[in-house]
Amino acid sequence: METLIGEFITLCMMAFALGMDAFSVGLGMGLIRLRFKQIFYIGLTIGLFHIFMPLFGLWLGRFLSQQFGAIASYIGGLLLLILGGQMIVSSFKKDDEPFISPLGIGLLFFALSVSLDSFSVGLSLGIYGARTVLTIMLFGLFSMMLTWTGLLLGRRFQQWLGVYSEVLGGSILFAFGMKLLCPF
């Protein structure tokens, strides 16, 4: 029983750590004017990606982790740079539609970019059976809840910061993109 509790606590800590990226990026994304319905779908989508990405990683195996991990980080970093830059530019041009928005295909790219690390963790877990189900469910739950928290906090800060909130949000996303591209 102690082993099961210890494993559960360890998995919760891993899920929390993986969800912190989603929280941080959600905080930046929340600075855009989003409706509660959009916030709900963004959190749900990111939660689902944090379920399917590690599951897909488990299936793909450790061999591809080393080759695909670096490429995935660069793609995710580039997407965050584009999204962050677009937010900064659009804050100065209020008439333009965003290049990437957290809707439709933009939401899928956004969810993919914040769930790439869970793909890498999934590649290295190597466990099967009930533990796999517990792991991916915790990853999904924690990332969804942390994304919602980040988006709602960002939304709250957006009301306080006014016009500068998009610049701040874009800067946060841009910084995370740079972190993925230049990890040193």
Results as ranks from 00 to 15, higher is better:
1 M>P: 07
3 T>L: 14
4 L>S: 14
5 I>N: 02
12 C>K: 06
12 C>R: 11
16 F>D: 01
16 F>Y: 03
18 L>K: 03
18 L>T: 05
18 L>C: 10
19 G>Y: 07
21 D>L: 08
23 F>D: 03
31 L>F: 00
31 L>G: 00
33 R>D: 13
37 K>R: 12
38 Q>C: 11
38 Q>S: 11
41 Y>D: 09
42 I>M: 14
45 T>W: 04
45 T>D: 00
47 G>M: 05
50 H>K: 04
51 I>A: 08
54 P>R: 03
54 P>D: 00
56 F>I: 02
61 G>T: 03
61 G>P: 01
61 G>C: 00
67 Q>V: 13
70 A>K: 12
71 I>K: 02
72 A>T: 09
73 S>D: 13
75 I>L: 12
79 L>Q: 03
81 L>H: 01
87 M>R: 05
88 I>W: 01
88 I>G: 02
89 V>G: 00
91 S>H: 09
93 K>E: 11
94 K>N: 07
94 K>R: 14
94 K>A: 09
95 D>C: 11
97 E>W: 13
101 S>P: 07
104 G>T: 07
108 L>Q: 04
110 F>N: 02
111 A>Q: 01
112 L>Y: 14
115 S>C: 08
117 D>P: 09
117 D>E: 12
119 F>T: 11
120 S>K: 10
120 S>R: 13
120 S>N: 05
123 L>K: 10
123 L>Q: 09
124 S>G: 09
125 L>D: 00
125 L>C: 01
126 G>E: 02
127 I>T: 08
129 G>N: 09
133 V>A: 04
137 M>E: 04
137 M>I: 08
138 L>H: 06
138 L>Y: 00
139 F>D: 04
139 F>L: 10
141 L>T: 08
142 F>P: 01
142 F>A: 10
144 M>C: 15
146 L>W: 06
146 L>A: 06
148 W>I: 14
148 W>S: 12
150 G>M: 09
152 L>N: 06
154 G>F: 03
155 R>N: 15
155 R>Q: 15
155 R>A: 15
157 F>H: 09
158 Q>T: 12
159 Q>D: 06
160 W>T: 14
161 L>H: 11
162 G>F: 06
165 S>M: 07
168 L>A: 11
168 L>I: 13
169 G>T: 06
170 G>R: 13
170 G>Q: 12
174 F>R: 07
180 L>A: 15
182 C>H: 13
183 P>F: 06
184 F>Y: 10
